[in-house]
Design a protein around this nucleic acid. Structure first.
Length: 206
DNA sequence: CAGAGGATCGGCT
DNA sequence: GCCGATCCTCTGG
């Protein structure tokens, strides 16, 4: 039987849910693609996300709009990137209508394409499993920093989301990781059975 | 303007 | 499992 080779299809704003929890679940199984200045590509499959809802005490947006979080209050489907603990960047996708501050944090990806490129940024000794496991690590491996804050994921030349048509995994939910407030809200989403998720094993039952 | 704290990571016990 | 690094942002005075 004939198979039609079809590359991953880039997602538009119209393809994705506007609502935060819905997007956090929807993203599991899709690809995040990074195009570097020399034209080379790296990509990973999203296996773990967290929702930061409107009126969420754990969210950067909880106390209103500031210079740092303004992307959260803008149109949905933009990259929101912030710097944390003096050591790491974290990548989010903004959600909800303009004026509402909310986003989905990308916590872990399974390497798919450009593994050598990822290794160049993370170090030669790093196991495949660890290249994109953790929000700070995935930003380091994909060279994502504050320059991407505000980037429109529908049109940006260097960063986008795509669907390669593979079956969507079963999705589990758990409490969020690393929070001091509202950590018990079950707003973490993960691909069941994936070896590439972060956090204690007991947090991600298959 | 000073101080505190943070959606993390890696190394060590 | 615990701890320190490291720096940006926000808050309060």
């Amino acid at each position: 039987m004939t198979r039609f080779a079809r590359g991953p299809r880039r997602l538009s704003r119209a393809d994705v849910p506007l609502e935060t929890g819905a997007l956090a679940r929807f993203l599991i199984g899709l690809l995040l693609v990074r195009r570097f200045d020399d034209g080379r590509l790296a990509s990973g499959r999203v296996v773990e996300t967290e929702a930061y809802l409107p009126d969420d005490p754990a969210s950067h947006s909880f106390r209103g709009r500031t210079e740092r979080n303004r992307t959260m209050f803008g149109n949905n489907f933009h990259a929101y990137v912030y710097f944390i603990y003096g050591t790491a960047y974290c990548l989010n996708v903004s959600t909800e209508a303009s004026g509402i501050g909310a986003a989905v944090l990308l916590r872990a990806l399974e390497p798919v394409e450009g593994i050598e490129l990822l290794r160049e940024h993370r170090g030669q000794g790093v196991a495949d499993r660890d290249l994109l496991r953790g929000p700070g690590r995935l930003c380091l491996a994909l060279a994502i920093d504050r320059r991407f804050d505000g980037a429109d994921l529908e049109t940006d030349a260097s960063l986008w989301l795509a669907d390669d048509g593979t079956a969507r995994p079963a999705v589990g939910m758990s409490p969020r990781i690393g929070l001091t407030r509202a950590a018990d809200a079950h707003q973490r989403f993960y691909a069941r059975g994936s070896h590439y998720v972060s956090g204690r094993r007991s947090l991600s039952p298959g």
